[in-house]
């Protein structure tokens, strides 16, 4: 009865759920800690699911990081760095995490890692995709989007020649970022936590069904692909001179066209967007990105198609 050319993929047996990669993004911190005490809801037959706090020192201090952003240091250079005394805490930690859940790009690496994040931006429950040709992940996102409908579940594709960054989850064969907002740093909101919890539930359900041998026909999803980062207007000293315009605040994933307001200066002047084509902003006014010189990210809508997949039965 199979009507499509099937890609046979290895079953996904080893799964990790990371929380506290940024220590002040509390939904993931509290979910992971809860699951470490009582993991019944994340267990599935035939799966090993490991909840794990990735940056315990930052979690303890309720800060994003101690020395540097853990979610940017899983590149070959940092993972291979000599462990000297003055190595940043997060680089040392990245090497430990890579040792347990990787090594990155090896057969021994975990099959799937969910990395749980929060944002102060109004992004809803967003899934972050690293590779536009990963059939398994696209199929999973398709499944999660359908399970959550009519609630929106945008997919953010961070594949880009120079804007992609070396994430914690990137050591897995299938890396999945979960980004839920808006939530202030250092706050846990019940509604946001619930949204994240549902995404993980459906993600694990998908893995379970996949491992049991269900065939997933080809599917297409719409994703938002990163194209550019936009900084705040700044003065000579590097201080910001304008804030996100009220018309753009909380408008993540909404179309932004030439002439639309994007910033409001402290003197009350409006700065508008200049561009030939419609873009879709996201990470609008994220607290952690002031220091990264990023007021918002521009994305474009792209359609991705995954091939028909089925698990190679053991």
């Amino acid at each position: 009865m199979t009507s499509c050319f099937v890609i046979h993929e290895a079953p996904v047996r080893r799964v990790a759920i990371f929380g506290g990669t940024h220590g002040n993004e509390l939904s993931g911190v509290f979910l992971v800690k809860h699951w470490q005490e009582n993991g019944a809801e994340i267990q599935r037959t035939g799966l090993e699911v490991r909840p794990f706090i990735t940056n315990p020192r930052a979690v303890k201090k309720c800060t994003r990081y101690i020395d540097c952003d853990l979610n940017r240091v899983f590149d070959t250079a940092n993972l291979g760095r000599q462990t000297t005394e003055d190595i940043p805490y997060e680089v040392r930690r990245a090497q430990e995490i890579n040792h347990v859940f990787g090594p990155k790009d090896s057969d021994d690496a975990y099959d799937l890692i969910f990395d749980l994040h929060n944002t102060t931006s109004n992004m809803g429950g967003t899934l972050i995709l690293e590779n536009s040709r990963n059939n398994f992940t696209i199929q999973m996102f398709h499944y999660i989007k359908n399970a959550l409908a009519p609630e929106c579940c945008p997919v953010f594709l961070i594949e880009h020649p120079n804007l992609k960054y070396a994430t914690t989850r990137s050591i897995a064969k299938h890396p999945v970022g979960v980004e839920v907002g808006p939530q202030p740093q250092g706050v846990v909101r019940a509604d946001i936590l619930d949204k994240m919890r549902k995404i993980i539930k459906h993600g694990l359900d998908f893995v379970h069904i996949f491992n049991e041998g269900k065939e997933f026909p080809p599917c297409t999803i719409e994703v938002y692909k990163i194209i550019e980062k936009v900084d705040y207007p700044r003065n000579k000293n590097g201080e910001i001179t304008a804030v996100i315009h009220p018309c753009l605040q909380d408008q993540d994933w909404q179309p932004l066209n030439n002439g639309d307001p994007i910033f409001l200066t402290m003197d009350g002047e409006t700065i508008t967007y200049e561009g030939d084509s419609t873009v879709y902003p996201t990470f609008v006014n994220e607290a952690a990105y002031y220091e990264k010189k990023q007021a918002f990210v521009k994305t474009v809508k792209v359609k991705l198609t995954a091939k028909c997949i089925r698990s190679l039965l053991p």
Partner: peptide, 13 residues
């Protein structure tokens, strides 16, 4: 409020 720590919102400003 409400305004997250480290965020500047035009309306509250």
């Amino acid at each position: 409020g409400p305004q997250p720590q480290g965020v500047l919102k035009a309306n509250l400003f």
